[in-house]
Amino acid sequence: MILWPAPGNPGRPIPGGTSLRTNVPKLLSLWAGLLPFLLFCLLFLILPTFKIVTGAFQAPDGTFTLDNIRMMNSGNIPSAFWVSIKISFVSALLGGVAGFAVSAALAFGAVPKALRGAATTFSGVAANFAGVPLAFAFIATLGPVGLVNVMLRSNNMATLQQMGFSIYGFWGLTMAYVFFQLPLMILMILPALDGLKREWREAAAILGASGAQYWRMIALPILTPALLGTFALLFANAFGAVATAMALTGANLNIVPILLFAQIRGDVLGNPHLGYALAFGMIVVTAVANTLYIWLRVRSERWLK
């Protein structure tokens, strides 16, 4: 990341001189233009996050401690993290694969061009249609008295519940998350698919490659950075989601955001600083996911500038 103009880079001269003495005030006035934005980010993005991180390592009296982190390994906290990670991973994977298939169908003309505009607009809506209303949409469809069960019952078939499915459990929530993961995947990956040049496919074909060889050796490696980035985003998106889970499963399902929500509301863990540790854990998970993504991306992008 470039925070400072590269020394001796003639392409980007710093206006007003080249000596260090004249540069310092110049740079300060440059950064001053960003002051409102930086102040805003500091107060409402950086400091609150920092507060969480430091709080996770403090005892109630303010002294440094690792007790909060240690206590994360107790009660239902580890399983909450595990379930959260599983739901986020599975919903990102399902939504990602399905979204990729739809994007490929749209990008390579398997379905008529006219559907493309409609599909992207709809994706824009659906990707932003999350939270409480989404939960109700799934309750109305897959819930005990929902559309599917009504139809099953009127045909004298076993209901979803009798088949062992619960909209209020792991798979119910995962299915609801897929509802916004799938269109988000389409929005993110369709431009990347459009970036695959027709000549690459043709060059591969004329050199004797089969369609599968083209995808394995050319198209997928080129798409890998975009795929990884989108997957990391989908994962974080599901991991931090609260409202859908609250409205759908209530306290039924033990996942981190709901646990943290309850803790903030009423200190259910009996230790306010354990809440910090919980939130810190969430930051760590998304940070690990994103670091993994950046690392994989750098590896897969050797061929880019």
């Binding site: 000549e199 690459w200 043709e202 060059a203 591969a204 004329i206 050796m217 490696p221 080129i222």
Partner: peptide, 14 residues
């Protein structure tokens, strides 16, 4: 058959 395209069309990842 061998073919050379107008816009290079080299595989950027190789």
């Amino acid at each position: 058959i061998g073919m050379v395209f107008q816009a290079y069309a080299l595989f950027p990842n190789l």
